[in-house]
Computed example of a mutant assay.
Amino acid sequence: MKDLLFEVKDGIATITLNRPDSRNAFSLEMIRLWKESLEEVRDNDEIRVLVLTGNGIAFCAGGDVKSMKKGKGFVDLNEEVDKDFVSTGLKRKNSLWNYIQRIPLLMEEIDKPTIAAINGDAIGAGLDMALQCDLRFASDTARFGEGYVNVGIVPGDGGGYYLPRIIGIDKALDLLWTGRIIDSEEALKIGLVTRVCSHEALMDEVMAFANRLARGPQQAMRFTKRTVYQGLKTDLRTSLDMVSSFMGLVTEHPDYQEGLQAIIEKRKPKFN
């Protein structure tokens, strides 16, 4: 079995981390397939929504601790483990940059809606991967934690970037400094997840929501996502200038006329 599964159905792409015996901890094959899948999502206009989930009892445990003990794991995925291997700071930096850190960079290039279906524990880099998604639907049995501090390392996969933007600086530092594990109830309370579902209903609810988004006006939705994320990085004047350009473009699109006509006829719109 492949370490990562990728399928597309009805405009919805699903990436499933598939190392259940290792709680979906990273492997070289997983990272390579992950990058390839994200490039397909980014470039294929037939794909309208991305769902990320895990197989088994965990969403993702992040780095493989057993491999890390050998000097490998998520820090040196580019080389085979051997008795003569000597790890260096530069090798570990380059390995992060060339492999795992490609994932958040690719996610930032995807204008389409992305949803994490968190079926189980999301720990360390596993939590960081969920934070990269626009929305996070969590099982009521899922747990969350930024465990880097427990092994004396820093959040290397985006946690220090995403977490304070999502839940605020003080709550982010609480999780990052203590490495404590929280349940889905607390995660919802602090805004870490968007919605909590019963474990049995998680994927049904995620796919129902994804289907709703897949039927929406795609160009308007993608421009809206750009507006939101770019707005976090710029001033009001620049944001308004950009969104006025988006408005000029979307009102030339057939979806605009269909939306207006549907309102007049008091029916649901049928977007392309």
Results as ranks from 00 to 15, higher is better:
Ser95Gln: 00
Ala130Gln: 06
Thr227Trp: 12
Ala25Cys: 14
Arg48Gly: 01
Asp3Cys: 03
Glu252Tyr: 02
Cys197Tyr: 10
Leu176Gln: 10
Glu258Ala: 07
Trp177Lys: 14
Asp111Thr: 09
Gln132Arg: 05
Gly89Cys: 11
Asn211Leu: 13
Thr178Ile: 04
Ala210Gln: 08
Ala187Gln: 00
Gly11Val: 04
Leu135Pro: 00
Gly56Asp: 06
Met129Gln: 13
Ile15Pro: 01
Pro217Asp: 06
Val49Ile: 09
Ile115Arg: 05
Ala116Ile: 07
Cys60Phe: 04
Lys72Val: 11
Lys72Arg: 14
Glu205Asp: 13
Met207Phe: 15
Asp45Asn: 10
Glu46Tyr: 00
Tyr256Ile: 00
Gln261Lys: 14
Leu5Phe: 08
Gln219Phe: 10
Met242Ala: 14
Cys197Lys: 09
Phe59Trp: 07
Met221Ala: 13
Ile12Thr: 03
Asp84Phe: 12
Gly156Thr: 09
Arg136Ile: 15
Thr224Tyr: 12
Pro164Cys: 07
Glu36Ser: 14
Ile181Thr: 14
Ile118Arg: 07
Gly156Asn: 09
Asp84Ala: 12
Ala187Met: 03
Arg180Leu: 07
Glu36Ile: 03
Ile15Arg: 03
Gly63Thr: 12
Asp76Cys: 05
Arg212Pro: 00
Lys35Asn: 10
Ile166Arg: 13
Ile31Leu: 12
Asp128Met: 10
Val51Ile: 15
Gly179Cys: 11
Leu188Thr: 00
Gly89Val: 13
His199Met: 04
Phe246Lys: 03
Gly152Phe: 07
Gly89Gln: 11
Phe271Asp: 10
Thr251Lys: 13
Pro164Met: 06
Phe6Val: 04
Arg19Ile: 02
Glu185Tyr: 02
Leu232Arg: 12
Leu4Ile: 06
Glu39Arg: 11
Val151Gln: 08
Leu50Phe: 05
Asn98Cys: 03
Ile166Tyr: 00
Ile181His: 01
Phe6Pro: 04
Lys233Pro: 00
Pro164Ile: 05
Lys66Val: 08
His253Arg: 03
Asp255Trp: 02
Ser184Tyr: 05
Leu188Ala: 09
Gln101Met: 14
Thr178Tyr: 07
Lys225Pro: 01
His253Tyr: 02
Arg222Gly: 02
Thr178Asn: 06
Met129Arg: 01
Gly56Phe: 12
Arg48His: 10
Lys2Gly: 06
Lys2Asp: 15
Ala122Asp: 04
Asp128Arg: 01
Thr53Arg: 11
